[in-house]
């Protein structure tokens, strides 16, 4: 079995350890004897989506997202076809915003890829903190770190999870991220995959199944992954800790 991961524009969209998500997917394939390769695309490179099983779209600064935006228009149709044919996509933060119809900032409107019917509006104050969400897909909570000025409205789409601690899509709805077909959009950095191996394996499995039919992934020893995950979950079960961090944040 073989997987090909396309990393879109790491030159520009590589904030907050996005590289770790690639490393995580590659390693978890390698440990199971699944062949995996990553193709990093620069802005000027043509992309043949038929060759790709997983697409990673990371986050960038607003300025960098503007630079990417004009290029996105040119690949939009191919990307859309990939998504509609159940191609697997992981979009983080800025990448998540670009999945939608538009991202409205104080300097203007960035047109999105329109792959998922959602939109983002920048508001005053960034939502910055550790975040814990509970997804129906997995038993364990998903943990990460959020840092975004944009508030995302996912309309009737399914969220990735319910916010247990943190702010999520817009700080109000109580939900975080989006799932549409095999596309996952989320604000979670961390990077998100290493501390949430269930999510990483879900992505790998979806990609393999699309290609090879029913697949069972070999179990791995995830003790270290789970311990790092549990540390964050436990930390915010402590109400005093929540209060302390809230106070420190405000002074």
């Amino acid at each position: 079995m073989k997987l090909t991961i396309g990393h879109l524009y790491p030159d520009l969209l590589n904030l907050y350890g996005d590289r770790g998500n690639i490393q995580c997917m590659m390693k978890r394939c390698e440990w199971r004897g699944i062949e995996a390769q990553t193709i990093s695309y620069r802005l000027e490179d043509p992309i043949d989506f038929d060759k790709l099983d997983i697409v990673l779209l990371g986050g960038g600064s607003d300025r960098e997202q503007m630079l990417v935006c004009s290029r996105l228009k040119e690949i939009r149709d191919d990307f859309k076809r990939f998504v509609e044919k159940d191609g697997v996509v992981l979009a983080i933060c800025g990448g998540y915003q670009l999945l939608g119809n538009f991202y409205e900032t104080k300097d203007g409107k960035i047109e999105g890829l329109g792959l998922v019917d959602l939109y983002t509006v920048q508001k005053k104050g960034r939502l910055i903190r550790n975040i814990i969400i509970k997804s129906e897909l997995f038993e364990r909570p998903i943990v990460g770190f959020e840092n975004h000025g944009g508030r995302t409205c996912i309309k009737d789409n399914k969220p990735l999870g319910k916010v247990i601690y943190g702010k999520g899509n817009d700080g109000k709805s109580g939900y975080e991220g989006v799932i549409y077909k095999n596309v996952i959009g989320t604000y979670l950095h961390g990077p998100v995959l290493p501390k949430n191996p269930d999510l990483c394996d879900y992505i790998l499995k979806k990609a393999l199944e699309r290609k090879y039919g029913s697949v069972e992934l070999l179990p791995l020893d995830d003790t270290q992954e789970h311990q790092a995950n549990e540390y964050i979950v436990k930390r915010y079960e402590d109400k005093m800790q929540n209060l302390k961090e809230e106070i420190l944040r405000r002074i």
Binding site: Y16, G17, R19, G20, Q23, I128, R129, N130, F145, N147, H189, G190, P191, P194, L248, R249
Partner: peptide, 13 residues
Amino acid sequence: RFQDGEDVSWLWD
């Protein structure tokens, strides 16, 4: 801690 940066994602860079 706050002065360190609360986000440890940078370790992966």
